[in-house]
Design a protein around this nucleic acid. Sequence first.
RNA 1: GGCCCUGUCGUCUAGUCCGGUCUAGGACACUAGAUUCUCAUUCUAGUAACGCGGGUUCAAAUCCCGCCGGGGCUGCCA
Length: 459
Amino acid sequence: MDVWDIINPMSVRVRIAPSPTGNMHIGTAYAAAFNLLFARHNNGQFIIRIEDTDVERSNKEYEKSILDGLEWLGIKSDEPVTRDSERLAIYRSYIEKLLESGKAFWCHHTKAELEAEQKEQMANKQPTRHVCSNKNTELAKTPGAVIRLAVEDEDNIVGFEDVIRGRIEVSQRSLGDLSIAKSLDTPLYNFAVVVDDIEMKISHVIRGEDHISNTPKQILIYQALGAELPKFAHMPLMLGTDRSKLSKRHGAVSVVEYQKDYLPEALMNFICSLGYTFSKEIMTFNEMVEEFELEKMHKSGAIFDVKKLNWINAQYARTLTLDKLREVTGIKEIPNSAVTIITERLEKLSEVSNFKYLWQRPDCEPGLLAWKEAPNDQTVRALTAVRTIVADIPVLDAPALRSELDELSKDYGGRGAVYWPFRVALSGEKASPDPTGIASVIGREETLERINLALRKLA
RNA sequence: GGCCCUGUCGUCUAGUCCGGUCUAGGACACUAGAUUCUCAUUCUAGUAACGCGGGUUCAAAUCCCGCCGGGGCUGCCA
């Protein structure tokens, strides 16, 4: 904790600023999760702001996807969601102010000129940046291609104290006259974020490591605007299996693609454990809030490993109640007595359909009914004996049935000879839960029916 | 090309600040075994890492220097 927090213990305000240029990305969820963790731990505010300054690429559908995805994960804005496109007048007034004071100017260079300049700088082993040759001329006062912040080309150091990484600094000379807007009404990212963060009184800017190099530029804008700097914290990136920034070519990166297989709590738990080490693997969000300290976030990126997600999801799946299981899978026919049998075997939610035979009569392959190489009549004999037991047993529950079947097995050449055909008759599968468990779920009548069906197929 | 961030098992990491208790711990995955008709669960065991090279020190994963690797950014995108 530093001085700032002691002075303003209750005014932590953080935000995520996704741009609606694609479906809800898993990386957005990651940034959102840690901002939320930090906000809640410090009794602060968490705000969602839609950064739609790029009119060409932004659209409402993507915005909806992002908001819906976040909500599914249990993430909501503490204040009404704002959009940059609705705040154009604000940026305009800031830009005009900078233009009037001469802190910003119109650059008239063409893209071709800029490209040539960049090429030459690379060849000369120089940092690529544009130091505008006519920034102090009359031309710079008339509308041109782009508005730039006037940055002195000097060896001054621009730096900041990153909450996660410590001191980070660069030479001002490597920055150049950075672009802030295409016109009075079309601010560019770096400028819009700064204005928004100032206006919204954001105290901590917590975002991905890929923004580290934007930060010095933004600091220059803060300074030109005479505004106080927020604290900056750059989180490690979520990586694909090749260790590069997680993107579409790595497969599923859209949260929508996870909704059918994973519980939101499990995904959140997994995502959070990727950037921070908590005291336990499985934790509720509130427990994580309790422990979370921003300074202790990891510094290096972590590969998004689905195997671990699957395991975490399996842990959560086991705690599912009947209603939850039905709701989450959309399968209303799941019987109450089948819940444990199913959830114990669940890695992905969509796998529930593998257990259809618990509420729907399966079609069983007669060839599968034989235990090992057992001849037909032996299988028939075993099933017939099992049928008698099922029919006569006073109470049909798994333990009772089990002890009867164990007894029977002694005369039929071992458990396999009895359990295997019985199980296949009930499930139709070569791998499934215990037949006594299935029988107790589907009931005596249905059990007898399925045995008879199998017997008929063997005849 | 330039600038910046980062580097412990296959993966996620603990340990690094304040050198010894680290023959480097845990989890996922994997392998084997126990339970078991099959599957899953559960339990037991096992394989597996300090990027490299110097230096400091009685002692280095931990401190210093150099190198190498990985990543990000380098837009009139965000």
